[in-house]
């Protein structure tokens, strides 16, 4: 599927600010399931962008605006071709939970087994995770049950939590947006030693009634590592296995690693932020 994404972030400051340092994670990665054909990132006031790969292999664009400015606009326009990432007839069942122990030394898995900024492994969430696991002995099945548990027990609401809400807090509230759903799923997976990472990206809503959540903004879900099979995406906000309707921007231990825009500046705190995201299909007329 060929998808086009427009993602705009606008900041307005009440008085001019300066010395703004920012990092963007808005450039879709390319891998065996998706290919980024083009990505244009545009910043106003205009400035030079530098690009590097971070430790998680995500593409980061960095820029500085030393001079005074009272608004900042960041736009990205990407075209991405996606392929079906899973064969729904051959999901990676059959790996026993008892094999997880072996994965702890794998460099691929190691950062995704621990507590991180938004995820804490503690007795309370561990007990919950054990309850959700019930008598499942299969890795993928357990992860799937965690996704289902969250989807069924969480209320989707964007007025309760904020961008800073911790995963364990979301798990207590059982309310929030996709970021909270994803963090909560990470907490439960990691409590059971299933390597699980946070994914930032977009989802194209192919449903007739536009019922998918998260299509109007940047979206987030998780991926779990099943040894021998690789990473599998699970979207607890929509209760589904990630397929070709999803575009990955980047992955990390949690939101902190992949936040689309982060930075600091010198200036007065109150400000407004506006985000617009559009995802369109380009290779078909069915939309």
């Amino acid at each position: 599927m060929r998808l086009y994404v427009f993602h705009q972030t606008k900041y307005r400051y009440p008085s001019p600010v300066k010395d703004s340092f920012n990092e963007l994670r808005l450039y879709p990665i390319s891998n065996e399931w998706q290919k980024c054909e083009s990505c244009f990132i545009h910043v106003l006031p205009s400035t030079q962008l530098q690009q590097y790969l971070d430790l998680n292999g995500n593409i980061v664009n960095h820029f500085e605006i030393p001079q005074d400015h009272s608004k900042l606009i960041i736009e990205s326009r990407s075209t991405v071709t996606t392929h079906s990432r899973v064969d729904f007839n051959a999901l990676p069942y059959g790996k026993k939970m008892s094999t997880l122990k072996k994965m702890q030394g794998q460099s691929e898995a190691r950062p995704y087994l621990q507590s991180s900024s938004f995820v804490e492994i503690n007795p309370e969430s561990w007990r919950l995770a054990v309850d959700v696991q019930a008598d499942s002995q299969d890795i993928f099945q357990t992860a799937y049950m965690i996704m289902e548990f969250i989807f069924q027990n969480f209320e989707y609401s964007n007025s309760i939590t904020s961008v800073e809400t911790h995963g364990n807090q979301a798990l207590k509230l059982r309310k929030g947006v996709c970021q909270d759903f994803a963090h909560a799923a990470l907490v439960l997976c990691r409590c059971l030693s299933i390597p699980a990472r946070y994914v930032s990206g977009y989802v194209f809503d192919r449903t007739r009634d536009q019922s998918m959540r998260g299509a109007e903004a940047s979206h987030a879900w998780i991926e779990v590592l099943v040894n021998g099979f690789g990473w599998f995406g699970l979207d607890p906000t929509n209760n589904q296995v990630v397929d070709e309707n999803y575009i990955v921007l980047g992955t990390g231990m949690d939101y902190k690693d992949v936040a689309p825009v982060t930075g600091t500046y010198f200036g007065k705190p109150p400000k407004s932020m506006e985000v617009n995201v559009t995802v369109k299909r380009m290779d078909s007329s069915d939309r």
Binding site: L55, Q104, G105, S107, R110, P111, L113, Q114, S115
Partner: peptide
């Protein structure tokens, strides 16, 4: 020394 000991330390800095 087992790899996982080192890599799982919260004070291990990948940077």
């Amino acid at each position: 020394i087992p790899k996982e000991i080192v890599y799982s330390s919260p004070n291990y800095r990948r940077e």
